[in-house]
Design a protein around this nucleic acid. Structure first.
Lengths: 350, 350
DNA sequence: GCGCTTCGTCGAAGCGTTTCGACAGACGGC
DNA sequence: GCCGTCTGTCGAAACGCTTCGACGAAGCGC
């Protein structure tokens, strides 16, 4: 493995000149640069990343911090990750994937103090997230995917739940729906301060109230069974419901199944809109789901771009951006039926 | 940020003693060790990972190399990644996620020569994969997830397609099925030497031949539409089919839809077994899919464990392991119907 | 009590870069 | 023709750690 020494020797220049030729930190004459480049090519020289990082105090490594519970990544989160990885790589940075259990602040502190990460993207942010404080204390540049409650002096990229919910509701209202049920993430997620659950709940309540309708909102466990159960509850609270807004990618399939079990067809009797969902998942259902399609890799990309700006200039302004999900109408939503009001049946099966 | 110097000064020992106390590379008396540890605690000392890596020639960073096409990670691959990340992290290593386009050998060479990665796990391996050669040339320890054609001197972890297919076929045969159709990955994947597609095809052919039945095998694009199309073809080639073995997670939902469109119910008329599938995905379908459940995070974990052994001892033997998928019977498979033979209908819709 | 190991510690030499101050020479203004 | 400015290059000092050889102090057998 050739070193800079070797290159310098071969090119008959000093080591520092090689360095300048490589980084452009100081002007180098055309002739010298060419000699150096030739020597590099001949020796098949590659700079040692660690040495470079030590001397320059920049590792060119970014961290992607996310809690890694056993249920793994959903399609949406996985798109964030791949978007981030691709962007970092294209910019000549490495992206390390660091599982940090939300509670393990000491581990995080250790990670941050190793000086290995030039900056981090923090995923799965809670509304009140202690990890942010730890990172700030360690003076590591941070960009959030998601938002804390107090967004005053942090950069973040997040989904615009407010707008997404409004657009989804508007779609359903345009189709004539009024009795719309919001099936949220789990009660535990709500209690734990999970942003998407909280924000979409509030946005939904506001939107429905705006239309003069009392909002019906039900939490659901993150599983098909959770969705089924939530729907049973929904029929209890709003037997005349004609539409469901599902926040919860896992639950939505249970919802579809339970609708069928209740003798309702989709979209003729009940419309379903799945929020923050990827097209791939939407196509899995029959009929294919009308979704608010999540911005996917763009979220990860924008987060890394913002982080790079912080890492490089340091003085840059905050980047705060909300990306809306876009409505994609597929087979699961349609106009409300004329005679709809008055529930066809009121039994409570299994 | 405290350095080792600071610790040494405070503990009134030399820098090297601090290093030995930290790494255990040489024996240190109990008394001295305690002094050093106390000093570290007081200064809130964290070793600088880069300096450590430069001096010891071990970065404690592993790479996870995978092509990152726009369609992102499936549930199964995503489990590999999270399993790997969790294991690396638990072992005190960092895991960088490096998107390497399958063709970009130069980029890979550069990555490998930076001396930043102690070893790499290579995912999405082709049967004839040039990346392996590049890595070997750069003397970077490698573990594959998947296998090349010539497995002689490489460590790998892979799914045991042979056994998985045999078990799945046995399950269906036990239920009385004989006309079983194998819906594979896309023709492009087959042509490109994608291991899972190739191996499962061969295993299926062997298994069916073993039962004295001519195998029916059809490739399908990785989408619901691909599944639908494949099924139409299937009905053409085997109108009396009673079971489908689906390799292709995306296509399987299309298959289910198309079965319904053909007037067949699952599992009464046709049984469906989804290969190498996660339970989460299985639950999305109605009825829930009988699957050969993929080993999920275990694959990533084992790959990292093997890689760490290579990185540390260097001399260790190869690790070659095949993990079978385990049969989980859910609602999509059942006994063949008595009068089954002789197709109910033979129309070719849409 | 003698030399021999063994144990615990130290000092110094790297590891392969970046970066800082210095400086020689070319250049232009007046 | 002299001085001040740039340009392009060099040498050396970091960066914060690991590791090697050396060495005094014990501990041992005989």
């Amino acid at each position: 493995m050739a070193t800079m020494q070797d290159v310098a020797r071969l090119a008959r220049v000093s080591v520092s000149t090689v360095s300048y030729a490589l980084t452009g930190a100081r002007p180098i004459s055309q002739a010298t640069r060419e000699k150096v480049l030739a020597a590099m090519a001949e020796l098949d020289y590659q700079p040692n990343a660690l040495a470079r990082g030590l001397a320059s105090r920049r590792s060119r490594i970014l961290g992607l911090l996310l809690p890694l519970d056993e249920r793994g990544l959903g399609a949406t989160e996985s798109a964030f990750v791949t978007g981030a990885a691709a962007t970092a790589s294209a910019a000549g940075y490495h992206l390390v994937l660091s599982p940090v259990d939300a509670g393990d602040l000491d581990g995080l502190r250790r990670l941050a103090s190793q000086r290995m990460l030039d900056g981090v993207v923090l995923m799965e942010v809670q509304v009140d997230d202690p990890r942010v404080g730890v990172l700030r204390e360690a003076r590591v540049p941070v960009v959030l995917i998601g938002r804390t409650g107090d967004t005053a002096d942090l950069s973040y990229v997040d989904i615009d739940f407010d707008r997404t919910v409004r657009d989804a509701v508007a779609h359903l209202v345009d189709l004539g729906h009024r009795r719309i049920v919001h099936v949220n993430h789990s009660a535990a997620a709500l209690a734990g301060g999970y942003g998407p659950a909280l924000r979409s709940r509030d946005a939904f309540a506001a939107a429905m109230t705006g239309y003069g309708v009392t909002p019906v909102m039900i939490p659901a466990e993150e599983s098909a069974a959770g969705g089924r159960h939530a729907l049973t509850t929904a029929f209890g609270r709003a037997p005349d419901l004609t539409a469901v807004l599902a926040m919860n990618e896992s639950a939505v399939f249970g919802i579809l199944g339970e609708l069928t079990a209740h003798g309702r067809t989709v979209p003729d009797d009940v419309s379903v809109v799945s929020m923050v969902t990827s097209p791939q998942v939407a196509e899995l259902a029959t009929p294919a789901l009308t979704t608010m399609t999540s911005p996917g890799t763009a979220v990860g990309r924008i987060a890394i771009e913002a982080l790079l700006r912080h890492v490089r200039d340091d003085g840059t302004a905050l980047h705060q951006e909300l990306l809306p999900c876009t409505l994609e109408v597929r087979g699961s939503s349609g106009p409300v039926r004329r005679q709809a009001v008055g529930a066809p049946r009121t039994e409570h099966p299994s």
